[in-house]
Nucleic acid binder design. Structure first.
Lengths: 236, 236
DNA sequence: GCAAAAGTGTTAGCGATACACCCATGA
DNA sequence: TCATGGGTGTATCGCTAACACTTTTGC
């Protein structure tokens, strides 16, 4: 079983950047360390890859352990391997980002890991190189969402256009024009208008929409140009 | 030095997808295996990560070993970790893609690894999951090149517009309109016209251009929309 | 003089942006 | 009735894409 003689072996970790959206703001799920080292600091949810699983398997296992959720939208981002990124011992970590519907997250499970949602704009210091990972994940999400309708993964089954707009505004940190936004959005044919209204966040109420699943995959590529001048986000 | 007890350790490899461009066609540099297993098959250039180097370091070392080139444009793509991707022993490989000026490649070094350039459209069978890596790299390059002027990394100092167009046509596997292409390109202000002409590939000869290095970095993001309907390449 | 590739200009149509008003409702 | 947020329509401008002919030169 050990045919490649004389080669070095590495600890392989997974770290998950878990994005959520509460209807108004974009948040990240972090866990609190109550052990040394870096006690009382916050960190991304992570864990080691086991010998009998792939990195993808491990990422899903770790995400499920924290959130109780399976089949979540998750994508491998990048391996981080600086020599002393983990001061305890040399570890190479593969970072994944995940998009979850914040409402499906089982709050009670959080106590095991002391998890908490933080606004992306107002995050505590993170251990190791986790802040770099978060920064890269935000950028990746901007790229990906400019070309593909992945942000629906952050929303519940039913959502309103103003919610969707708040989501895009949060991801791109910029105000979008209501009229142009809804027109472009509806023109994709991806949305189905429901007869109900959401009446919590306004007096008039906003109609709920749901995703047309049959068109979602086939139109995955046609969902572009939501963001004026998207290139300003692609500066690196 | 071994503080994380009871965790599994992994062989960590690097595989490099090395793109080149000969003025007409896009090529990949492959190495020939003259040992078992998979003797007589072709493979990506690869190697193991050493304990005292980062994956990026290892990728650069491995690339230099094959090509003799340093400070090449290289980007981490993705970690591949299927359980039996390497039948010899469990190995997780981090794939990088590199863009090199084919003319700088030292041909004589190739003998050590039995390296050879192959047209991307006419590749032999590759070992392990290397064909998947190549497929993903081609896609990544399409994405990246649609947003950033990275394809200049494949060209020599001096190049002609028809060469550049052939390069884009190769990357996107589609014919582009000469007039629109050169107009868009020149309008970026990234190119400096030289007084000389390249006269090998045509009777009339085409003017050489060179990259305006001072504008290259600052305009890195403004070099968009070269490809009509780029979304058709972003279907997954 | 002819074949082969380089180089250049114009136009039409679509899509992106900017912009202002009415609607529905709860308090 | 008023304040709040939801919802819709239009005009302009710029960019994209489609398209054809002239130029240069080696053979």
């Amino acid at each position: 079983m050990s045919k490649y003689k004389g080669q070095d072996r590495f600890l392989l970790a997974i770290d998950c950047i878990i994005f959520g959206f509460d209807g108004s703001n974009i948040k990240l799920l972090l866990v609190h360390r109550d052990i040394e080292p870096e006690k009382d600091k916050w960190s991304l949810m992570g864990g080691f890859v086991h010998a009998d699983e792939t990195p993808d398997d491990a990422a899903n296992r770790i995400l499920e352990e924290l959130t109780g959720l399976k089949s979540v939208y998750m994508e491998q981002m990048q391996a981080f391997g600086a020599l002393n990124r983990d001061p305890v011992e040399r570890t190479v970590s593969i970072a994944y980002y995940a998009l979850i519907d914040i409402h499906k997250y089982e709050q009670q499970l959080s106590h095991k890991h002391h998890a908490e949602w933080f606004l992306v704009g107002d995050m505590p210091d993170l251990i190791f190189d986790h802040s770099d990972m978060v920064k890269m994940a935000k950028k990746r999400l901007q790229y990906k969402a400019a070309l593909h309708p992945i942000l629906f993964q952050l929303l519940p089954e039913k959502f309103t256009i103003p919610q969707l707009q708040a989501l895009y505004e949060g991801i791109y940190q910029s105000k979008l024009d209501d009229r142009n936004f809804s027109r472009k959005l509806l023109s994709t044919g991806l949305l189905i208008k429901l007869p109900e209204k959401e009446k919590l966040s306004s007096k008039k109420g906003a109609f709920y929409y749901t995703l047309d699943q049959s068109h979602y995959m086939e139109n995955f590529h046609s969902f572009l140009n939501f963001i004026p001048n998207p290139d300003r986000f692609f500066k690196d």
